[in-house]
Design a protein around this nucleic acid. Structure first.
Lengths: 128, 128
DNA sequence: GGAAGAATTGACTTTTACGTAAAAGTCATG
DNA sequence: CATGACTTTTACGTAAAAGTCAATTCTTCC
């Protein structure tokens, strides 16, 4: 496990721009350490980037991703806060399940569409 | 099955604004018929709206949704076009499968986060 | 037949998530 | 030490997806 990654290493690995990484830092999603002014990304930062991009692919906004990421971090000390986090987790879980239903439905409809195309092709094959 | 829905009926059913529906019409995603200037939405339009919102929840852009919707419609006559559609369906299926992996991973991490919270709560319960 | 209540159009605004360009600092290598 | 590849900050720009608002135009209902 490497200790540090440079910003361009991560841009290449994830196919994103330096602007994007700086933007995520501005948004408080990641906090790479500095040597002088230069950012050094630790494996944990790299993992956060991975989680951010995953969230993006699922259609979550930066604000939502921030919320999700916050929940992965160490749980706080206070009981009330813990309850609150658990409630938020429940909520996100609900959203994800909705997305899963959406996903399965869409996959089904794509299957049907493909079948229709294949049938149509068969017809053409016969008629030609 | 009702023959027509008014625009406000659909806004209420789906929790979106008239502006949004008109926007989708401008974008060519739906094409409600008119009585005078008033839009009348058929069940098929309503179903399209359902599909659009599903696409949105999955993080697809309007352009992508347009692409997906086009594939649900009747397959065209020409073999080359049919092949092209099938290829696009394959591609979308790939994206959806990636999303599904992302989704499962996120659900797993949320589970872990919740467990951590529950444990922490148990500790607090013991210590108090 | 006139007032109230929907709908419509068009223009302008907003938010999100970066893109892009300028100007300057950093650092390894020849 | 200078060259070139990277990086940084600052600041303005932009595309997508609506929101908002104003001015009209239908309806319809009493």
């Amino acid at each position: 496990m490497r200790e540090y990654y440079t910003i361009t290493e991560l841009t290449r690995e994830f196919g994103i721009s330096t602007r994007t990484l700086r933007f995520y830092e501005d948004e408080g999603l990641i906090a790479p350490v500095r040597r002088g002014r230069t950012r050094l990304f630790r494996p944990s930062d790299r993992h956060l980037v991975r989680q951010i991009l995953r969230g993006k692919r699922l259609g979550f906004s930066i604000a939502e991703i921030r919320e999700i990421i916050k929940m992965y971090s160490e749980p706080p000390g206070e009981a009330g806060q813990l309850q609150a986090i658990i409630a938020t987790i429940e909520e996100k879980r609900g959203e994800l399940r909705q997305k899963r239903r959406d996903l399965e439905e869409t996959l089904d409809e794509l299957d049907q569409a493909e079948e229709a195309c294949v049938e149509r092709l068969a017809e053409l094959g016969v008629n030609t």
